[in-house]
Design a protein around this nucleic acid. Structure first.
Lengths: 157, 157
DNA sequence: TCAAAAATCACCCGAAAGTATGAGCGGTTT
DNA sequence: AAACCGCTCATACTTTCGGGTGATTTTTGA
């Protein structure tokens, strides 16, 4: 903040000096050149242009640090699947077979019965049998409930 | 871009008009007031101040706020246990309505469409509509996929 | 106040999920 | 060998889900 103040003062001093210099330069011009009638507008124009430029320069100098910083938060999801370990105890408690657990995992991944069947190279009916029996063992009625329960019990990530 | 161009032109026209007006104003002053010797510097000063101001105004108008877009990658760790807080950012990003998010939550709880309908005191068809639009927005095909995606994005616990 | 978005509901139809039941095959256990 | 279990597959049937379409009402934002 104090730096800013100094900077501003420096700029102001520069501005003052520039103004003084320009005025004296014009005065000098006035003395040197034969001034024709109605030449005032020419001087005024020159001054106008010069000081407009000065103003622009000033404004740019003063408002330069005014950069609007827009921060875009890009969310990066980490796959915490890596640090998943099967709750062996819960698995044994559940009474599920390895195959049924496997099916449950794929089910939780959002796969359809047909897709699970294709993945495991077995028939759709086989998967239906697996799901039916695992629903019974887990005491649920739907795959969504099975997924919910499975996650809660540490059976699936 | 074309808008900017127009804006610039507008500013330029304003600038020209201001210059013309000021010059004529000063000319008028010259005619009206008895000009003492060495009064030139006073006029020059007035012009200088006025046009410096004009320059500053111009520069501010012309200098668009430089938007420095900084993309910050921010890792979001989900505590998918007890204390769940909705990822507001993800929610807004998803384009889901409040009701749709509500349905998604109940869906993840393992409820059937009929049960969700009963819970929210609306018809089964309404829930079907919600789920359909929700699937479309989330770019999924099944409820299990919606639940998976919803959990990953912090939309549901 | 006016348009857009959200929420509500209905109907149809096909696909997917789930239920029930039966059965064959390879293992292990008793 | 008989009993049991896990895995496989099948048929038949019911329920649920999801897509498509269209409509009305309510809410909201500009």
């Amino acid at each position: 903040m104090s730096m800013n103040f100094l900077q501003k003062n420096k700029t102001m001093i520069l501005y003052g000096l520039s103004l003084a210099f320009l005025l004296y330069f014009l005065r000098w011009l006035e003395l040197r050149v034969v001034i024709i009638n109605n030449a005032f507008e020419i001087y005024a124009g020159i001054i106008a242009v010069l000081f407009t430029g000065l103003g622009i320069w000033l404004a740019i100098k003063l408002t330069r640090p005014k950069t609007e910083t827009r921060i875009i938060e890009k969310e990066v999801y980490r796959n915490n699947d890596s640090d998943f370990v099967l709750n062996q105890n819960a698995f044994e408690q559940s009474g599920l077979s390895k195959r049924e657990l496997e099916v449950l995992g794929l089910m939780a991944g959002g796969l359809s019965n047909q897709e699970i069947a294709d993945t495991l190279f077995v028939s759709l009916n086989t998967i239906k049998t697996h799901t039916s029996s695992l629903f019974e063992k887990m005491e649920v009625k739907r795959r969504t409930q099975a997924i919910e329960a499975g996650k809660r019990q540490g059976l699936i990530p």
